[in-house]
Deep mutational scan, measured.
Amino acid sequence: QWKVGDKCSAIWSEDGCIYPATIASIDFKRETCVVVYTGYGNREEQNLSDLLSPICE
């Protein structure tokens, strides 16, 4: 189960590419979260089910 502060990978809606991110907040009722893309600072809402394991850098 994901928690705030977890590192993950998420698909950015603008280009469909996968980027490393950190979970900033979680809404368990809606099963969504807000991620912050590492190195970019962009925030975006994602479905918890769409999150991927962190990418090894």
Rank of each mutant, 00 (worst) to 15 (best):
Q1D: 14
Q1L: 00
Q1P: 02
W2T: 14
W2F: 11
W2E: 15
W2N: 15
K3E: 14
K3S: 08
K3L: 13
K3H: 13
K3W: 13
V4W: 03
V4D: 14
V4P: 14
V4H: 07
V4M: 00
V4E: 14
G5K: 00
G5R: 00
G5P: 02
G5D: 09
D6M: 09
D6I: 10
D6K: 00
K7C: 13
K7N: 11
K7I: 12
K7G: 11
C8A: 01
S9P: 03
S9D: 04
S9V: 08
S9Q: 13
S9E: 11
S9H: 12
S9Y: 15
A10N: 01
A10P: 06
A10C: 05
A10H: 03
A10K: 06
I11C: 01
I11N: 05
I11Y: 07
I11R: 14
I11E: 04
W12S: 13
W12T: 02
W12F: 10
W12E: 05
W12R: 10
S13T: 08
S13P: 05
S13L: 08
S13Q: 02
E14Q: 13
E14A: 12
E14G: 15
D15K: 07
D15C: 06
G16R: 01
G16E: 02
G16V: 07
G16D: 05
C17P: 01
I18E: 05
I18N: 01
Y19K: 01
Y19C: 03
Y19T: 01
Y19W: 05
Y19I: 04
Y19F: 07
P20R: 06
P20M: 12
P20F: 12
P20I: 11
P20Y: 11
P20N: 14
A21F: 06
T22I: 14
T22A: 02
T22Q: 07
T22E: 10
T22K: 04
I23R: 01
I23W: 00
A24P: 02
A24M: 13
A24V: 15
A24L: 15
S25D: 08
S25H: 05
S25M: 10
S25A: 08
S25Q: 06
S25C: 08
I26D: 05
I26H: 01
D27T: 00
D27I: 05
F28M: 12
K29C: 08
K29P: 06
K29T: 12
R30W: 10
R30E: 10
R30A: 12
E31I: 09
E31W: 11
E31G: 15
E31M: 14
E31L: 13
T32D: 04
T32H: 01
T32I: 10
C33L: 04
C33D: 00
C33A: 15
C33W: 10
C33F: 05
V34C: 03
V34I: 13
V34A: 03
V34P: 02
V35F: 04
V35H: 01
V35Y: 03
V36M: 08
Y37I: 05
Y37P: 04
Y37W: 05
T38W: 11
T38P: 05
T38I: 13
T38F: 08
G39Y: 14
G39I: 11
G39L: 09
G39P: 10
G39H: 12
Y40V: 08
Y40R: 15
Y40A: 07
G41T: 06
G41H: 08
G41E: 08
G41P: 06
G41A: 05
G41C: 07
G41R: 03
N42W: 15
N42G: 09
N42E: 06
N42P: 06
N42D: 12
R43F: 13
R43T: 13
R43P: 08
R43K: 10
R43W: 13
E44R: 03
E44Y: 06
E45W: 07
E45I: 11
E45T: 13
E45R: 09
E45D: 03
E45N: 04
Q46T: 04
Q46Y: 02
Q46G: 07
Q46C: 05
N47C: 10
L48G: 05
L48K: 02
L48D: 00
S49C: 08
S49N: 09
S49Y: 08
S49I: 11
D50L: 04
D50I: 08
D50K: 05
D50A: 11
L51V: 01
L51E: 02
L51A: 06
L51W: 06
L51Y: 04
L52Y: 09
L52P: 03
L52H: 01
L52I: 05
L52K: 06
S53Y: 11
S53M: 13
S53K: 12
S53V: 11
S53N: 09
S53D: 14
S53W: 13
P54R: 10
P54N: 07
I55F: 12
I55P: 08
I55K: 04
I55E: 12
I55C: 13
I55Y: 12
I55H: 07
C56S: 14
C56I: 15
E57D: 13
E57G: 13
E57Y: 12
